[in-house]
Write a protein that binds this DNA or RNA. Structure first.
Lengths: 390, 390
DNA sequence: GGCTCATGGAGAAACGGTTCTTCTCGGCCG
DNA sequence: CGGCCGAGAAGAACCGTTTCTCCATGAGCC
């Protein structure tokens, strides 16, 4: 009986070491055809429940696990999604995006998993060998640089690509980003209301969308309100450079009385620099930085942070991607021609065609703490925007 | 010509939408057989260089990318490694292991990539459907609980498993861990030398190896030096509980004059608690915690931390796993019968047989900062153990 | 000149599923 | 009583590689 199952019409002389049971083994053991087994296990075909459950039971007993490779080959679906991170230097992901990336990746993993997909982490720098050795149903790209050749090739070869961060010049299926302009303007207003007269910015030298949009928003605001811009730039991937830049900013003759730092470690760096110059926060200097880290809740004083809500982003990106993967296959089918592009929080998903890819803007959240509030009025601490929500 | 290539002996009537070029197309275009194409591209077989390069060129021109699924099916190798994380609740990985995990995962990704593998992140909680839908060549497991059914099944079905953290009771191919006992003893000695008379511990309630070994080391030390243990426990996955436990520890009548916290956020929690009780650090309370976060370099005062060197761990784990994957296939071949088990920093890899799996102990690094040094002598800051090394 | 041998390359069998098509068999209806 | 129909299940093609086996050819050797 088991012997019969073992042979199952394959190589008669095979020594058969510890090969796992295949679908044929199950079929033989259950006394049915492999078609029936496949149908029974996948809930397809027309089978009476009795057969179905019997086959399932036999499969279970034999410890049958279908071969992912075979299934992928036949169906063209691997259930795998790439998560691409841009890299500086050799490390797969960057220091500066650490907390953001970790949270985003976590949410993305969750979201993917709950829809039956798994995530493969792939630095954008890896060469084709690695990429093309993996069957990917689609890819999430974090902050693709302009003209990313990798993204272009993926897109061209028909793999759906959704980017976290509005893509500069590469074709993607869809993208998700924060409303960085609104976020920066919100912060500048917040600092103004707190009494700031001259707001400085600590920003990066790179050309990614986040840095560019944020800096532009700052410059535009300065122009509108008639303040001379006061900012320092540094390569965001280098934490040491950040500390130096923070110091530089506070050492300027036109020292700002409030600073917004675009990158995670800026808060502690600015705080340390302020200490060195004998500046009290928030009395002499108001501070806000963009960070996902909760250490800023316990610094002395606690620092107001802007959260980009990476969990939401990760979830949204993955869901858009899976929609694209499972949606209308390609070309013709426009699912919903909804709003144009860049609408807030919108789109029912839309499968290609021509024209710019559909983008989704997600709100940010300003977590107001002591560092950005004048000490005297002693108001209670509360987040001003987007309350509720995880 | 392209027409000929397009047909290539497949369905004659196929409408052939935008199918990617297959190996047959390349073969047809190059005027050779698919065997030759395969050999040429993979550097196998006996072919004159001329043929080889011609085929390569044609493949390049056609944008040929071999199907990962087909290759995997045929060769049995996917180039994919699972990275399993234990989960508390719904999130794929835990808060408390955040920095550790992020760093470890990053190093693991790098290490895997440099050997041509990619990492798939998989929460241990996901059900079989997900696991068995992915062709994995092997799996890294982070801190498997005793009797982890997942690990057992993987191991049983022949997939190499290497764990980060000495496995309790599940069979693994190999494991890597820090020398937690030595680390704790080193810290206790360090605190004693700094003048501590009564050292407290902030530890977890869970039964993972790290918590257990560390706590045992502490208790053993107490017994040896004749100090009454002073410790508080809390569920490590709950950050809020950590703050409460820190408070509890400092509120005790037998308040310790030095504390070691096993988990990352303990440092800030203890600092905050100390502030509440008016305790100065390090004057009234010496502080050390285990953390990979560099925020402790800039807290007030900076806090001494124990680093588990997750990068090293991640790299080692992955390399051991890939050795196992690529090494002698199974059963008979003992590569090197080296030292027994649990030797420090050792083993040439050893493929199974019976007996306990080979384990590697990695050193930790104590980063001494102001919080654990009496203020007066004002010594310079320097790491006492394992200098150098990334 | 017949043999072996090395070289270059073609043929075809896997790999292990999914799925389209076909077959059989009763029951039912006209 | 014959044909139709639908349920249940089997057959076989196919997915795109890798790789084992084998064939043709010409050179070298006795």
């Amino acid at each position: 009986m088991t012997a019969a199952a073992n042979q199952s019409g394959r190589r008669p002389t095979a020594s058969r070491r510890l090969e796992r049971a295949g679908i044929r083994d199950v079929a033989a053991a259950a006394g049915v055809s492999i078609t029936t087994v496949s149908d029974a296990l996948n809930g397809k075909g027309r089978l009476p429940d009795e057969t179905r459950s019997r086959v399932r039971e036999v499969a279970e007993r034999l410890g049958y696990r279908p071969s992912a490779a075979a299934r992928t080959l036949r169906t063209g679906r691997s259930g795998l999604i790439g998560l691409t991170v841009t890299t500086y230097g050799e490390e797969p992901f960057t220091f500066t995006e650490f907390a953001y990336f970790a949270e985003m990746a976590r949410a993305a993993t969750s979201a993917a998993l709950s829809r039956g997909y798994a995530l493969v982490v792939l630095p954008a720098s890896s060469r084709h060998d690695v990429w093309s050795n993996i069957a990917l149903d689609g890819t999430v790209v974090i902050d693709p640089p302009d003209q990313d050749p990798l993204v272009s090739e993926l897109y061209r070869s028909g793999v759906p690509v959704v980017s976290d961060g509005k893509p500069g010049n590469c074709p993607v299926t869809a993208w998700v980003d924060n409303d960085h302009e609104a976020a920066v303007l919100g912060i500048l207003d917040h600092l103004s209301e707190a009494g700031a007269r001259r707001i400085g910015l600590l920003t990066g030298t790179s050309t990614d969308t986040y840095t560019r949009l944020s800096t532009d928003a700052y410059l535009g605001w300065c122009q509108r309100v008639g303040q001379e811009p006061v900012y320092e730039t540094y390569p965001a991937h280098d934490p040491a450079a950040g500390a130096v830049a923070a110091d530089r900013l506070l050492a300027r003759p036109d020292r700002p009385d409030a600073v917004y730092g675009l990158f995670d470690p800026n808060g502690t760096d600015l705080l340390a620099a302020a200490r060195r110059y004998g500046l009290r926060v928030p009395d002499d200097l108001l501070l806000v930085c963009c960070s996902e880290s909760d250490v800023y809740a316990t610094t002395e004083p606690p620092i107001t942070t802007l959260s980009l809500k990476p969990r939401r982003i990760g979830t949204t990106v993955v869901n858009l991607l899976i929609d694209a993967i499972e949606g209308v296959d390609s070309g013709t089918g426009v699912t919903v021609p909804d709003a144009p592009t860049g609408r807030l929080f919108p789109p029912r998903f839309r499968t290609a065609g021509t024209g710019p890819p559909p983008g989704t803007l997600m709100p940010t959240e300003l977590i107001v703490r002591a560092s950005s509030q004048p000490r005297s009025p002693r108001t209670t601490i509360s987040p001003p925007r987007s309350p509720g929500e995880v």
